[in-house]
Design a protein around this nucleic acid. Structure first.
Lengths: 337, 337
DNA sequence: ATAGGCTGTCGAAGCGCTTCGACAGCCACT
DNA sequence: AGTGGCTGTCGAAGCGCTTCGACAGCCTAT
């Protein structure tokens, strides 16, 4: 293991000079700088992370807490995690992966041990038990997701309410009067996940404003669950011509079932999905959809966090505006039969 | 921030005594131990990670390098990552998330800086450029996946070759003579990802032994790509009655297309998938499948790694035996028409 | 009664780095 | 020529922990 002192000796300067070359916190003459940099390269020096954290009082590590569950759209989580990791690296930070398993204890542990300088929390519930801890510490944090009370917190999320509204407005604009919403699994609503409830709010208020009828049904993913749900929908509202799907593992089953029932998309029934673009494009019918900007969310979260670590900017709620892309799955409502 | 010294003072002992209570490396009288533990609790003490790493020469962090790409089955990666994180925690380790982006540099950085004590690499290619570095360092590592040359390396993986063989044997045993393999995206084969090539080997040698004809076609995920591939398959081998699918995002499209063409599963055509159980169960036809034991792989990788860190056990290749679960998508080959 | 061996605790050194204050040398003013 | 202000470099003091050697006190075997 090469140490600072060895580099210093090799370059013929003192250890502190090498340190200042590395950090840029004091001016160094061009000649000295070059000699030091040369020595660093020749010796293959890497600063020791522990020593750095100890002396500098910051670890240059960001903790990312991901959900343990896999009932929510996993690729989105993964994409966020990857975006967080790569963005963090561009700012000189590494990412520590925490699972939801430890719960609030993880927050205490990380805060207390100085393992990480800051944290990003995913899968935030409306009344999340980790929030009091976050408010009670001076360690910066960013939530991906919106709790009920955002006071004193920094959050980044898609504007789910606007997302819901957008879907309804699109369908209403095409003349659909009866819209069914295929939602996430019941468990997601039961634990009061913010995005699910907010989407619902947006859907409902847009329905009210445009005067369309809305039927919301949670749905586990998969073919069988979807079949049951769909049967119930048409049972209760035979005139349904528009679907909004928020559960990605219900998308393909829904399309298959509609096909099977002889309902053409988009001639008889229109479908709007809330899902990553990749899913929308790969489906058996290219889906009109509102994208979930996973990368953007991860990137923005890190950027806000780094800003806070640098003492720039304070608490803030960043809501990304949704965008609807029209593809082949939505069209004018059929004439009433 | 509470320090060791403060705990020591509070408990009326020396700092080293507190340290020994924490580490258990020297015997401590019951009374002293209790007083110290009491003080730790009262003060809410957490050892400082940086200081610990510096003095103890180990960070208690495991680095996990996940692929940046998302053309491979993402939920599997995610499940592995989560399993790694939770298993690591039970052994007292945290997990640092590295993306493939930095490539070999990440290995150098982590090794050189003492950021992590060991690393786990995912998405290993047959001739991976990170391998020489791994062999050249004394930092323990485990690969999830199998490179061409496993000398001096520890690897954990599903036995893909046996997996392929199992699929063919199952179909051959049911009387199928013409089998089509729907593989991963072409890019996966082009970069010589071990698991894809090994599966193919297993499929081929089992085909040779059972005397069935095999047609292998790489396939991007999604409906359109699958439609093209399927058309080609039936064009070249009209008598095909068995399918092995290794690309999870091709599973549902395949089923939909077969249905659309009036080919009943499993009466006319049998399908065996290589995918996580969840996918097999959620599909529109409950799929006969060989499971990808993502959790198991993550867990085993950490356990091997911890063993190496503890000086137990050396290099070793752990191949998990595949298991085929018969569900509704496979049955006897139809009588030749 | 004495030597030897345990057990439990302490003090001090040191891990590799950052950062503060000191200061030598130089320039540009008076 | 003298003062003041820069600029670039250095030495030393820690950061909070682990670990080594020392040793006091006690018990057992002779």
């Amino acid at each position: 293991m090469v140490t600072l002192a060895e580099v210093a000796q090799h370059a013929g300067v003192s250890a502190s000079t090498v340190s200042y070359v590395l950090s840029g916190k004091r001016s160094i003459s061009a000649g000295t700088r070059q000699r030091v940099e040369q020595s660093i390269r020749e010796l293959g020096y890497h600063p020791n992370a522990g020593a750095r954290a100890l002396a500098g009082k910051r670890s240059n590590i960001i903790a990312l807490m991901i959900p343990l569950r896999t009932d929510l759209y996993v690729p989105v989580m993964m994409e966020i995690a990857i975006a967080v990791a790569t963005t963090a690296r561009t700012h000189g930070y590494d990412v520590l992966l925490l699972t939801g398993e430890e719960g609030p204890d993880a927050v205490r542990r990380v805060t207390g041990s100085g393992l990480a300088d800051a944290m990003i929390l995913m899968d935030v519930e409306l009344e999340d038990e980790r929030l009091p801890l976050l408010r009670g510490t001076d360690q910066p944090s960013v939530l991906i997701g919106l709790p009920a009370d955002t006071g004193g917190l920094t959050c980044v999320d898609l504007d789910w309410s606007a997302t819901g509204a957008l879907c309804v407005e699109h369908l209403a604009g095409l003349g659909h009067r009866d819209i069914a919403v295929i939602g996430e699994a019941p468990a997601v609503y039961e634990r009061h996940t913010g995005f699910a409830e907010r989407t619902l709010d947006g859907l409902r208020s847009a329905a009210r404003e445009t005067g369309v009828r809305l039927l919301h049904r949670p749905c586990e993913g998969g073919y069988d669950a979807m079949a049951l749900t769909l049967a119930r929908v048409f049972d209760e509202r035979p005139a349904t011509t528009g679907f909004v799907v928020q559960n990605e593992s219900a998308v393909e089953p829904l399309l298959a079932l509609l096909r099977q029932q002889g309902r053409a998309v988009p001639e008889d029934v229109s479908v709007v999905a809330i899902c990553p673009d990749q899913v929308a494009v790969q489906a058996s019918v290219r889906l009109t959809s509102v994208a979930i900007p996973a990368q953007e969310m991860g990137r923005r979260a890190v950027e806000r966090l780094v800003a806070k670590l640098d003492g720039r900017g304070g608490d803030e709620v960043v809501l990304l505006p949704p965008g609807l892309t029209r593809r082949a799955s939505s069209g004018p409502a059929p004439a009433a039969s």
